[in-house]
């Protein structure tokens, strides 16, 4: 795209020996201060970028927390002396059995499809940057944007559990309590969000730069 038609070639601040603030875009010439003169964001040259370490660390934490989130019950329901527990997946199956297909789809997407594809997306992005893959820079950046945007929506299931538990109180025939998985799932979502936020998108563009002669 950047080579289309009569457009001038793009120059990055780095090409010019300048450092652009990753927060507000303020350009700094040498000697580069430690923090942006405008917004106080720490300035680092991309060659010394260590953000991938944080990406991997948060991602590992998110993956570990995701395991108990699927094994242990998300919701414990007691109704007329009977108690039942359901994990995330069982919750989706129950919804299908009650023919609430749309809600089942929403819960499945938010609690299973999005978290798992997010893990793979972050792994792919981090690996592609580490291996200095040059192709598909625009598509990879788009993937990064989607991951950043969509990750928060996984919290839906945690909120639903919290709302149900508060709503269906002791006074009624049924009680609903959150299971231990609610905590680990919330942690998993938070850790993966932190992982995505740690990712420096300039790294994607930087790897693409190399492909230009």
């Amino acid at each position: 795209m950047e080579n289309a038609g009569t457009a001038q070639p793009l120059i990055t601040a780095r090409d010019r020996g300048l450092v652009g603030c990753p927060n507000c875009g303020r350009v700094h010439s040498a000697p580069v201060p430690a923090v942006c003169v405008r917004c106080s964001e720490p300035l680092r040259d991309i060659a010394h970028d260590r953000s991938l370490q944080r990406v991997w660390a948060w991602l590992a934490a998110g993956l570990i927390a995701y395991i108990p989130a699927n094994i242990y019950p998300m919701l414990r329901t007691e109704s007329l002396g009977r108690s039942s527990e359901s994990t995330i997946l069982e919750g989706v199956v129950e919804l299908i059995q009650h023919e609430s297909y749309f809600v089942a789809l929403v819960v499945f997407t938010a609690s299973i499809a999005i978290p798992i594809s997010k893990f793979f997306a972050i792994i792919y992005l981090a690996l592609s940057v580490q291996r200095k893959v040059r192709q598909g820079v625009h598509n990879r950046y788009r993937l990064y944007e989607v991951v950043e945007f969509i990750g928060r929506w996984s919290m839906v299931d945690v909120f639903v559990v919290a709302i149900l538990a508060a709503l269906v109180q002791l006074d009624f025939a049924a009680t609903v309590n959150p299971g231990i998985a609610a905590i680990s799932f919330a942690l998993s979502v938070a850790f993966t969000m932190l992982s995505a936020q740690s990712f420096n998108p300039k790294l994607i563009w930087e790897s693409g730069e190399l492909s230009q002669p």
């Binding site: 001038q8 070639p9 990055t12 601040a13 700094h28 991309i46 998108p201």
Partner: peptide, 25 residues
């Protein structure tokens, strides 16, 4: 925006912006 042209190397950094996500100047 159009990229800053190469001849303008004397441009004051205050008159420029580096894209916060991709560093284009």
């Amino acid at each position: 925006l159009n990229p800053s042209d190469r001849s303008a190397s004397g441009t004051d950094p205050e008159d420029m912006i580096a894209c916060p996500t991709c560093d284009a100047l």
